[in-house]
């Protein structure tokens, strides 16, 4: 789990001795990672631990409550959210979330969801601790990545919430750009939604289908072999459409991709 020796700098304290590093951090797994992309979650945890930061995964966590909240069921959303407030110890440690969407819900919407309700103060403290995974890796830990993979051309998909609500895309792309043998080709219409939109894809499959068709065309036009994203909802939608069209493009969560490139496996 330790970083390769050759990259250690002597002028500075080793990363795992840095007193400014949080110890420990909590990890919020998200529903989609648990159900569909467990390796992305494992990779995200391993990458944090590799920097010498212990990761705790509280049992009893489930969903952030966003599907109910965004569909207009605040009571139901609050019940689900409250379970998360209870599952995580009420201390100062960061809560790292490998999804811009779930992180956005917990960071920006929990305070409003609990306004005037019991647990308001707890929800505000909780929200203040939430940090998206790529921002945590890049900005809080300042990771330095050594690329061990073969040359590869990839493209990056920005999720709407990671880009507009969490504003973490610079961190996500920054991690990819640290990989010396990876060429990052940007999408022509990066700012456009892939069509997932949570329950939107279920409620309006025709519009969602039109959006993801255009998104896959855009991905294809980059000539990339892989599309990397920080949100598994988008990935599920995009990789589904890619598979449906039988295209030789692979979709991967950023954490899984970075683990694969830097761990040499």
């Amino acid at each position: 789990m330790r970083r390769p020796r050759g990259r250690q700098r002597t002028a500075f304290p080793r990363k795992d001795q840095n007193p400014l590093k949080p110890n420990p951090v909590y990890f919020f797994g998200t529903c989609l990672i648990e159900s569909f992309f467990p390796r992305a979650g494992e990779a995200a945890i391993r990458l944090i631990e590799r920097e010498g930061v212990p990761v705790r995964f509280p049992a009893g966590q489930s969903c952030c409550g966003q599907p109910a909240y965004n569909s207009g069921y605040p009571d139901d959303a609050r019940a689900v959210a409250r379970q998360q407030l209870r599952a995580f110890p009420d201390d100062e440690a960061p809560i790292v979330v490998p999804s811009g969407s779930c992180a956005g819900m917990m960071k920006h919407h929990y305070p409003g969801l609990f306004a005037g309700e019991p647990d308001q103060a707890l929800a505000e403290r909780f929200a203040g601790r939430v940090v998206e995974w790529s921002e945590f890796m890049a900005a809080r830990l300042g990771v330095e990545l050594e690329d061990r993979g073969a040359p590869l051309k990839v493209t990056w998909h920005s999720s709407c919430h990671a880009m507009r609500e969490m504003n973490v895309i610079a961190h996500s792309k920054g991690l990819i750009r640290q990989l010396s043998r990876v060429e990052l080709v940007e999408l022509a219409r990066e700012r456009e939604c892939c069509g997932f939109g949570g329950t939107f894809a279920v409620k309006h499959p025709a519009i969602s289908g039109a959006l993801v068709t255009d998104k896959v065309d855009d991905i294809r036009a980059t000539g990339a072999e892989r599309v990397i994203a920080g949100d598994c909802g988008c990935l599920l939608n995009i990789t589904g459409a890619i598979a449906h069209r039988g295209l030789p493009i692979r979709g991967q969560h950023l954490a899984e991709f970075i683990w694969e490139r830097t761990h040499g496996s």
Binding site: A68, Y73, P74, H109
Partner: peptide, 28 residues
């Protein structure tokens, strides 16, 4: 930020909401 507020006002009170089977109406 106001979308959930409006959806709460528009959400069906009957069965079939996202969480399914809840008879309670959302409270905007």
């Amino acid at each position: 930020r106001q979308d959930p507020h409006h959806r709460a006002a528009a959400a069906p009170a009957q069965r079939g909401g996202v969480t399914g089977g809840r008879e309670r109406r959302a409270r905007p």
